[in-house]
Design a protein around this nucleic acid. Sequence first.
DNA 1: TTGCAATATGTTTTTTCAAACATAACGGGT
DNA 2: ACCCGTTATGTTTGAAAAAACATATTGCAA
Lengths: 125, 125
Amino acid sequence: MAGSVGDKYYDVFLKYRLWLSTTNDKGILGDGRFALLNEIDITGSLKSAAEKTNISYRKAWGSIKEAEEQLGFKLVEKQRGGKDGGNSRLSPEGKQLLEAYTELKEDFDQSVKKITKKFFNKINK
Amino acid sequence: MAGSVGDKYYDVFLKYRLWLSTTNDKGILGDGRFALLNEIDITGSLKSAAEKTNISYRKAWGSIKEAEEQLGFKLVEKQRGGKDGGNSRLSPEGKQLLEAYTELKEDFDQSVKKITKKFFNKINK
DNA sequence: TTGCAATATGTTTTTTCAAACATAACGGGT
DNA sequence: ACCCGTTATGTTTGAAAAAACATATTGCAA
């Protein structure tokens, strides 16, 4: 989206980030973990989810672990060994959190869209 | 703010950041530069503004410069030398951008407040 | 009982980004 | 001509985050 200030013209976008955080400012769920949980839900595998979201398995695993430690409950139920080597799926709480966050994001996007419109109308004289 | 997912209880906050960015993803104006510009407007000095916002002069100066390079116009008109050593004040465009962003922030905060309320109502069943 | 694929973790290296440090230039006032 | 406070900028150091690397463990199935 483009805008102008006075007679000066430029290309700018309104961007935002949103995330859930603990009292002590440790991130719980933002875009990164959201994508990860989402893919786990779809693929049933932490490894696949990591690949899909373009992060290393090591990072994905650590990321989930961190969040769980902060929350005090499991987001993902994982099993290792077995015919497929193992698998991962969202815990009920993980699933609910994912869903709640999904809606939250939608609400946010909608609001931002409105505000953006208003903002650029204003800025463009 | 507290919430629960299923029967699991935890303390979480909804956090967010908002900023203006160019097409190539270079930040133009977020909370940091906003505070800086604001203080420049008040104090008439980049040095004072840096102190007030708790960043080094070096950083403040570089931050303004970066934004200006991206935008292609000056946000701050600066003079050096003279009886007071020099001074800085917002350009007309800088002033207008500051004002527009102020309103933007207000709108955004308002929306977030509503969304937050809804979110935590939902999460707490 | 061996192989396989995925989960589980510790360790090391690289990258990135911020903070600190150092120094120059400017121009009015004394 | 020099002093002072502020703007202007290059350089170096340090710390934190991310990526890369290395290995172990598990349990089904052949």
